[in-house]
Simulated assay, not measured.
Amino acid sequence: MTTRWLTPQEQRAWRAYMGATLLLEDALDRQLQQEAGMAHMYYSILANLSEAPERRLRMTDLAERLKITRSRLTYAVTRLEKDGLVRREECHWDKRGSVAALTDEGMATVERVAPGHVETVRAALFDHLTPHQVKQLEEIFTGIAQALQGDDEGGAVADVPWRRRSSPCS
C-alpha cells in the first residue's frame, strides 16, 4: 500500500489544528484549576449531568457524551464522589449498569464556575471567529465526528472509546 502523505496545505492545517487544540485545552484547564481546583474533564462531567433530566445519566451514556472510555469515566466519577459533587446510584432499568447523579453541591459548583468557563471559551475561541466561521466549524467537526463514530444501524461500528469493554458495572 502506498502512503498518502499530507500535502503542504494539509500539513499546515493539521499542525494548526493540533496547536490550537492543545492551547485551547490548556487555557480551559488553567481557568478551571484556578476557579474550581479541577481539570476540564471533571467540569465536563458536572456540566453534562447538570443538563440531564433529573441531573442523572447512565454511566455508559455519560461516557458517550464525553467521548471517553468507561474506565476513564469511572475513575473521574470516583474522584468527584470523594469531593461530594457526584453520587453513583444503581441503574433501576439495567441491573448491570450504574447512574451518575449530580449532587446539590455539584450543581452549586457548576453554577459558580460556569460563567468563568464560558468566558474563557468565548475569549479563546469564538471571539476570533465570524458567525460564518462558527457555522463552518460546527459543520466540519460534526462531519468528522460522525465519520469516526461509525454506523450503529447495519454498517460497520467504529471502535469508539465508550463502546470498549472495561468494566461490567459501567
Rank of each mutant, 00 (worst) to 15 (best):
V134S: 04
D94M: 07
L46H: 02
L62K: 00
E111G: 04
I45W: 01
L62F: 06
R79I: 04
M107T: 05
L62P: 01
K67T: 02
A52P: 06
E25K: 14
E138C: 07
F126N: 00
R79Y: 05
L23A: 14
V113C: 11
E89F: 02
D104K: 05
M41C: 00
W93I: 14
D83H: 03
W93P: 07
E25P: 01
G37F: 09
E64N: 06
A63T: 08
A108C: 03
D94A: 11
T120M: 14
Q136C: 08
I144H: 11
A123E: 14
T74P: 01
E35H: 14
T78D: 09
K67G: 01
H132R: 13
K95C: 02
G143N: 09
T109F: 00
Y75T: 15
V134E: 07
D29I: 07
L28Y: 13
H92T: 12
R58E: 15
L46S: 04
H92M: 07
H92Q: 12
L62I: 04
V77I: 15
R30H: 10
H92I: 04
V113A: 15
G106K: 06
L85Q: 05
P131S: 08
L85N: 01
I68F: 00
R65C: 00
K82L: 03
F126V: 05
P115Q: 03
Q34F: 06
R88P: 10
Y43P: 01
L24D: 04
H132S: 12
E119K: 15
G106T: 05
V118T: 11
Y43G: 02
A39P: 02
L49I: 07
L129W: 04
F126M: 06
V77C: 10
R72Q: 14
K95A: 12
V113F: 01
E35F: 11
A114R: 13
L57C: 07
M41L: 11
G37M: 08
L66D: 00
